[in-house]
Amino acid sequence: MTPGGRASSGRVSMAQVAAHAGVSGQTVSRVVNDSPRVDPATRSRVERAMAELGYRPHPAARALRTGRSQTIGLVVTTLATVGNSRMLQATAEAAEERGYALTVVTAAGEAGVSRAFQRLHDQGVDGAIVLNEASAQVPASERPTDLRLVVVDAPDGSGLRAVHSDHAGGARLATARLLECHDTVHHLAGPADSFAAAERERGWRETLIAAGIDPPAVVRGDWSADSGHAAAGALDEASAVFCANDQMALGLLRALADAGRRVPKDVAVIGFDDVPDAANYRPPLTTIRQDFAALAQRAVGALVADIEGGAADSGVIPTRLVERASA
């Protein structure tokens, strides 16, 4: 041992931890496996001994004891969008906090999600989170019956364990804010097969109808800034635009500037997501903040609870309006 009590080399054993903590090897095993049959004072002593010695449970041995790999999967169709990449980062962090590793698989094509599920099952993951656009493929997919799932962005009544941001509520906030100064609000929507896009469109539409306004024709993009730029021609009569994400809003802002239309004096623009760069758009973008960290925490927490037999907390994560200079 080193003077501080840490093992000088090699893997620290449970027996060494037990001796250091003054308990039995069985007690150390119970702490490692998070058994409730250990009183708090003893658990604290054992955990302190593990930290002092640098003990780390052997993953393969733990998997044999618990029947779990401590690994969860993440199924995505793409990581090119800002929302998906931020969710990947947040999910990895939330999984690590709970002692789980994360493996990512992409799903493309008609059978993409089914293949992704089979790959994850073959790798022995304990469960999987399905992200955003991939979620639409889950109901029709073939999946192993023992693969636990949590789906981010699944419709109500799908029968799936699901979590999602309050897309419709955020859209209502954005639309109502624009209606304070404008007679109507146009909508630059996301892809037609996206749950998030559909919910944001629903919130916009319902807010206009509730105000006695016939909703204008939807202009549709594909989440990219390029599609937002291309959509500007179809919005040349708009004085207020709610964009379904910040990337499309960025493209629209550039197109408006190219056309000599001032924001917000000539056209007010609100986005959705509150990406890290939104405050540095020109002008700084008013947007709806989606809490990716909270969404990932909720999804991972629900999956881990299902895996470990705890109470799962799924549901809807609130969104909020962030006021800046574009509206």
Rank of each mutant, 00 (worst) to 15 (best):
G10H: 13
S326C: 07
A293Q: 15
A196M: 04
G309M: 00
D258A: 15
L74M: 04
L131D: 11
A92Q: 15
V31D: 06
V75D: 08
V322K: 04
D273T: 13
P3Y: 06
Q70I: 00
G310Y: 00
L321P: 03
D34I: 01
P155Y: 12
E199T: 02
V105M: 05
G4F: 05
C181T: 15
R177V: 00
A230L: 09
Y281G: 04
S69Y: 08
K265E: 08
R282C: 11
Q16C: 01
D236I: 04
V104A: 09
H182P: 11
G159N: 11
E199S: 15
E308F: 00
R205T: 14
G54A: 05
C243W: 03
T2W: 11
D313R: 15
P276Q: 12
D193T: 07
A196Q: 00
R202A: 15
S141R: 07
V12R: 08
S114Q: 00
A210M: 01
A211L: 11
N245Q: 13
A294H: 07
R148K: 15
A108P: 00
A171L: 12
A278H: 12
E110P: 08
A90H: 02
Q26V: 08
A192M: 11
R6G: 13
G4A: 14
D156I: 07
R320G: 12
G22E: 06
V152D: 01
A107Q: 10
N84F: 02
E47D: 09
R11S: 14
P264G: 05
R143I: 09
L285E: 14
S9F: 14
V152Q: 05
R254Y: 12
R261Y: 11
D34N: 13
A111N: 13
D166L: 13
A234S: 14
P139N: 10
A49M: 09
V76F: 13
T2E: 07
R56I: 12
V82N: 11
M50E: 06
Q247I: 00
A278M: 10
R262C: 02
A312K: 06
G22F: 10
R282G: 08
N245V: 12
E93W: 02
V304T: 10
D306N: 04
M1H: 07
G170F: 00
G54Q: 10
G22Y: 05
G212K: 04
A268C: 10
R205L: 10
T145H: 14
Q297S: 13
T27A: 15
V125Y: 12
L64A: 07
E308D: 15
G170L: 03
D183T: 06
I129N: 00
I213Y: 08
F272M: 01
A128E: 02
V322E: 02
R30D: 10
A293R: 14
A168T: 12
D246K: 04
H229C: 07
H229L: 08
D183S: 15
A294I: 01
R56G: 02
A294Q: 07
N84W: 01
L178M: 05
G22R: 11
